[in-house]
Design a binder for these strands. Structure first.
Length: 839
RNA sequence: GCGGGCGUGGCGGAAUGGUAGACGCCGGGGACUUAAAAUCCCCUGUCCUUUGAGACGUGCGGGUUCGAGUCCCGCCGCCCGCACCA
């Protein structure tokens, strides 16, 4: 007889060891089986696993285990995104070495992941800070360089004065460093860049093939790449200069009533040199918020320079303003303003009493229609526009561009928002950029047989700035070309480079090169990639770019690295706090007793305020440590909770009551497994039907990542099996239940399997067969409606004809009472569903 | 402001245009027990002349349909993203 209770503190470790022993989860690239690559975004080794990791990896684990049961060779690897600033911060704060700190954290977190029993192929584990990994990365970087995708330029960059490093445009948030929060300054430095813009069109087109990506992520990337087509041309200014402008609406050129430049445009700067008022205005423009919402609602302001610009068609002299709503870093930093058909221009023209001509109207007859307080940016036909009159917007755009090109005063251009990726970081804990600066030969790549360029161990973090730069000897070397004295590059690569190809290295890890293209082709693209939506733009776009860049260099066949992407929701928890004067003091869930009506602090028995359910964060102290709950409830209860209730893309509110319920269900299943009875025989048709239906439905749910629904179905079958009398069908139900729940609760499944006398490991078992004939009910419940409302339900054979169902429905006493003798005008019969009687 | 998403019991959420509220949590009642824990059973959208062939009910107002949580139009509210993209 089995033990009364399932004891995860014993069972979890036992089965984890058994899986390791049997090497259940090691992927074989040479396998004949069809292959599936399940990948979750690898973690940064910050110290401890947090609950968001647990949710992410549990979802991936269910998929990995499920596909293995379906007979596929599964690659489900894990590693560490191990370079980055926190390690240097720890080094500065605690006086430890970033490497030691990182590897200690990896050891801790690996132990925590092991406790959760994930079906991971640990044989392929690596950290991006392993010299072996970053050495291969250096080789790839040189390949990109040799293929013209890497270059250096003296460029104005975002300088973070706290972290002493350069930030990508993408890493500047509200004018502040995305990590330090410090106000970003502009500085000129010699930087390394990757030519992501070479692939702008391809990256955009590729989005169209990613049908299994969330629409939202595709849209965000599309907007980020930001393709727009229009006309670039120059105005002749009364000052004698030429002013290039860019417009996406060349069709509206006859509606231009003024011209405007950005505050930091050279024309504005020139004006300001001799004009104190202009100077003041420019200073004013630089104040205030820079977010879209702030700018969008801010009042439009302008400064009339007194200069005029000649309209290329009409010859009219348009006033030139410096305006706060024109951006220097998009297009040419100067615009032709068409107030009738652009809302910003409209507001500006209204404020400064400038003309607002109409050049697009619903029809040619409405050329004189007044504006209704706002610009009309939509479709229509051109009016008041000379040779364009009567054309639609698209035709007019083409016509204007054609004339501009013919007259050599402008040309049609495509403008991208996407800019090249600056990858230089003035930092120690990253991949050293494998180049050498020689006075005679210039910038020379390190010969590949000298890779990796390893980071020196003996560095100090007592002063800010780059330790590589002030290291006494490391940077001194000789030129590989001429043998003369030379210096190593002291910049390291952005950590996003590390995560731009790690999924290739997981698939194939030869010692002598970054990866083997043929082996990579066995696994890529990743069948299911899972991670947080916070990586929607940067990481995912860079990874797509690297894949293309490597293909461009002839290293890869794959184009899109991730066939299907899933972005999971956050784990949330309510907050507990008290007011201490103006300050809000927060308490952790562990400090609070929530068993009563409200919440009280265990320490003093006094109530605390229950706040909103929000993302777990250290500052609000609403965090739960995975290790604590694994200890209290076991890995399977924690995994089950992660999959229950909330759809995986939505936020999951953590609750003590919820995890307790999961713990109870683990025991409930365990008791049911104990009722498996070899000696029982006989049929239970209803239960057999329910079993097969559940097996099929759970498979479908898992494949759709609808884990919450799979969970609900497992509860239902459990209840049905509990209530059933012993029979051969009930044994089959119990055994099937164990198998279909095993991807979610693998330890419990193994323990139950061994108790039931199953052979081998569940981790290596097959998904149960479905008897298709049992999926169809032979009796079904039919709803009978009268006037669209439910009046009765009745049971009928599944193959009952429409006439039979109608007769059956009309025979119902309840239905007859509802009809109450009224004339029946129509009867709608949906076989297998309902009968609706219309009177 | 723009773009995207969402709105269903006390809570998390189910529902190919076809019986709204599956399943879980909370809560209530009962059984077992000397007692507790554990477990099991029942109830649990609102209202009403509280068991009845009852009415109402999926943010609000319209519409399409035999039938709308689901589709269409117009609002309101919340969440996420944002780069004034000319």
């Amino acid at each position: 007889m089995t033990a009364e209770r399932f004891d995860p503190s014993v069972a979890d470790g036992r089965w984890q060891a058994a899986w390791d022993e049997a090497k259940c989860f090691e992927a074989d690239s040479a396998s004949e089986k069809p292959k599936t690559y399940v990948l979750e975004m690898f973690p940064y080794p910050s110290g401890r696993i947090h609950i968001g990791h647990v949710r992410n990896y549990t979802m991936g684990d269910v998929l990995a285990r499920y596909h293995a049961m379906r007979g596929r060779e599964v690659l489900h690897p894990m590693g560490w995104d191990a370079f980055g600033m926190p390690a240097e911060n720890a080094a500065m704060e605690k006086g430890v070495h970033p490497g030691g700190w990182t590897y200690d954290n990896i050891a801790t977190m690996k132990g925590q992941l092991k406790q959760l029993g994930f079906a991971l192929d640990w044989s392929r584990e690596f950290a991006t800070c392993d010299p072996e990994y970053y050495g291969h990365e250096q080789a790839l970087f040189i390949d990109l360089f040799e293929n013209g995708l890497v270059y250096r330029k003296q460029a104005e960059v975002n300088w973070d004065p706290v972290d002493m490093t350069v930030l990508a445009n993408e890493q500047v948030i509200d004018g502040k460093g995305w990590r330090s929060g410090a106000e970003v300054e502009k500085r000129k430095l010699n930087q390394w860049f990757l030519k992501i813009t070479d692939f702008a069109d391809d990256l955009l087109d590729g989005l169209g093939t990613l049908d299994d990506w969330p629409q939202k992520v595709r849209l965000m990337q599309e907007n980020w790449i930001g393709k727009s087509q229009g006309l670039e041309f120059s105005f002749d200014l009364s000052s004698g200069d030429k002013l290039p402008v860019y417009t996406t609406r060349p069709d509206t050129i006859f509606g231009a009533s003024f011209v405007a430049v950005a505050a930091d445009h050279p024309v504005a700067q020139a004006v300001a040199e001799n004009d104190a008022t202009a100077q003041e205005f420019i200073a004013l423009c630089k104040r205030g918020g820079t977010t879209a919402a702030e700018l969008e609602t801010a009042e439009k302001l302008g400064f009339d320079t007194g200069i005029t610009a000649r309209h290329p068609f009409t010859g009219a002299e348009l006033p030139l303003f410096i305006a706060n709503f024109v951006l220097m870093d998009y297009g040419t930093g100067a615009i032709m303003a068409v107030p009738g058909h652009d809302q910003r221009d409209f507001e500006f023209a209204t404020k400064y009493s400038l003309p607002i001509p109409r050049v697009v109207a619903p029809s040619v007859d409405e050329a004189g229609k007044p504006f209704d307080g706002e610009a009309e940016a939509g479709e229509g036909v051109l009016v008041n526009s000379d040779f364009l009159d009567g054309m639609d917007v698209e035709a007019a755009k083409a016509e204007v561009i054609a004339r501009a090109e013919k007259g050599h005063w402008g040309k049609g251009t495509t403008v991208w928002r996407l800019r090249d990726w600056g990858v230089s970081r003035q930092r120690y804990w990253g991949t050293p950029i494998p180049f050498i600066h020689c006075d005679a030969c210039g910038v020379v790549p390190v010969p590949k047989d000298q890779l990796p360029v390893k980071l020196p161990e003996d560095v100090s973090f007592e002063q800010p700035g780059n330790p590589l730069l002030r290291h006494p000897t490391w940077k001194n070397t000789e030129c590989p070309k001429c043998g003369g004295t030379a210096q190593r590059e002291t910049d390291t690569l952005d950590t996003f480079v590390n995560s731009s190809w790690y999924f290739l290295r997981f698939a194939s890890q030869p010692a002598d090169k970054p990866f083997d293209a043929a082996e990579v082709a066995q696994w890529l693209p990743v069948d299911q990639y899972i991670g947080g939506v916070e990586h929607a733009i940067l990481h995912l776009l860079y990874a797509r770019f690297w894949t293309r860049a490597l293909a461009h260099c002839g290293k890869l066949e794959v184009k899109e690295p991730f066939a299907s992407l899933f972005t999971q929701g956050m784990v949330t928890h309510e907050t507990y706090s008290r007011k201490d004067g103006p300050r809000e003091v927060y308490y952790t869930p562990a400090e609070v007793d929530r068993t009563g009506n409200g919440a009280v602090l265990t320490a003093d028995g006094q109530p605390v305020e229950i706040g909103k359910v929000i993302k777990m964060s250290k500052s609000k102290k609403n965090v739960v440590d995975p290790e604590d709950i694994i200890r209290d409830y076991g890995a399977d209860a924690v995994r089950w909770f992660m999959l229950s209730d909330s759809p995986p893309e939505r936020d999951l509110p953590w609750s003590e009551a919820g995890i307790e319920g999961c713990g109870r269900f683990v025991q409930r299943l365990w008791r049911l497994f104990g009722q498996f009875d070899d000696t029982a025989s006989g049929e239970d048709k209803d239960l057999a039907r329910k079993t097969h239906q559940t097996i099929a439905a759970v498979a479908e749910d898992i494949e759709a990542l609808a884990f919450n629904k799979a969970v609900a179905r497992i509860y239902e079958l459990t209840s049905a099996a509990e209530k059933a009398k012993p029979s051969a069908d009930r044994n089959h139900a119990i055994r099937s239940l164990l198998l279909i729940a095993s991807p979610m609760m693998p330890h419990l499944a193994e323990e139950g399997w061994s108790e039931m006398g199953g052979t081998g490991l569940v981790a290596e078992a097959d998904w149960p067969e479905v008897d298709e004939t049992l999926l169809v009910e032979d009796e079904i419940t039919i709803a009978v409606q009268h006037k669209g409302k439910l009046r009765d339900t009745l049971t009928a054979p599944a193959d009952a004809s429409k006439d039979d169902l109608e007769a059956l429905a009309l025979a119902s006493e309840k239905v007859q009472r509802s009809i109450d003798g009224a004339e029946i005008r129509k009867v709608i019969v949906v076989p297998g569903r309902l009968v609706n009687i219309v009177t």
